[in-house]
């Protein structure tokens, strides 16, 4: 009987492969999981955009739930998400911090002047030092950081109302509930 069973091996192996393919079909192969989720925000110490003398560090994120948005004035995706960032800044109490990435100071200042400024503070990372420490691929990227300075979520690409509602809001709500629970 074993002699006959061995001829079933190819079809069994193939069935397994089809199952795997089926799973793989609906995954984007360019998806890459970020190693930073649920880890502390990497340390940095950078000058701020409006005031070269002032420094911003990761300690800024402590005590509240905030966004850290990687952007640059040369980046088309950033232009697309800018209105969304303004909406978040005006209609929610989630502060947005910016990482002005691989950009020219003058161009960045002009950008904020023309389009409005959704950011509390912008750290300037002209040479992509902090960017690499944060595993940044490109702009735009948005990190969600909780009150303990832990990264809870990372979105790559322009932020849209759909992504905000689907990925960010639930995490913000649960992080707040934890915070309230811990505080009481």
């Amino acid at each position: 009987m074993a002699g006959k069973l061995k001829f079933l091996i190819p079809v069994a192996v193939f069935a397994g492969m089809v199952a795997i393919f089926y799973q793989g079909l609906y995954k984007d192969p360019t998806l890459v999981s970020s190693p930073f989720i649920d880890k502390a925000a990497p340390a940095f110490d950078l000058p701020t955009l409006y005031d070269d003398q002032r420094r911003m560090t990761e300690r800024e994120f402590r005590g509240k739930i905030s966004l850290f948005n990687v952007w640059a004035s040369w980046c088309p995706g950033c232009a697309r998400e800018h209105d969304m960032l303004l909406t978040i800044a005006h209609t929610t109490d989630v502060p947005i911090y910016g990482l002005n990435w691989k950009d020219e100071r003058q161009a960045a200042l002009k950008w904020l002047l023309e389009r409005g400024n959704p950011y509390e503070v912008n750290a300037v990372d002209r040479d992509n030092i902090t960017g690499i420490d944060w595993g940044v691929y490109g702009a735009p990227e948005t990190f969600l950081i909780d009150a303990d300075g832990i990264i809870r979520y990372k979105h790559i690409g322009p932020l849209t109302p759909e992504i905000w509602a689907a990925e960010f809001l639930p995490r913000i709500t649960s992080a707040r509930a934890m915070l309230a629970g811990a505080g009481s």
Partner: peptide, 25 residues
């Protein structure tokens, strides 16, 4: 397109390997 090809592959290869399992011995 991927789903179509997967179904097609499943039928063509699946059927021939089943036939193989049945006949090869």
């Amino acid at each position: 397109r991927g789903l179509f090809i997967l179904i097609f592959l499943g039928i063509v290869i699946g059927a021939s390997l089943t036939l193989y399992a049945y006949r090869a011995s």
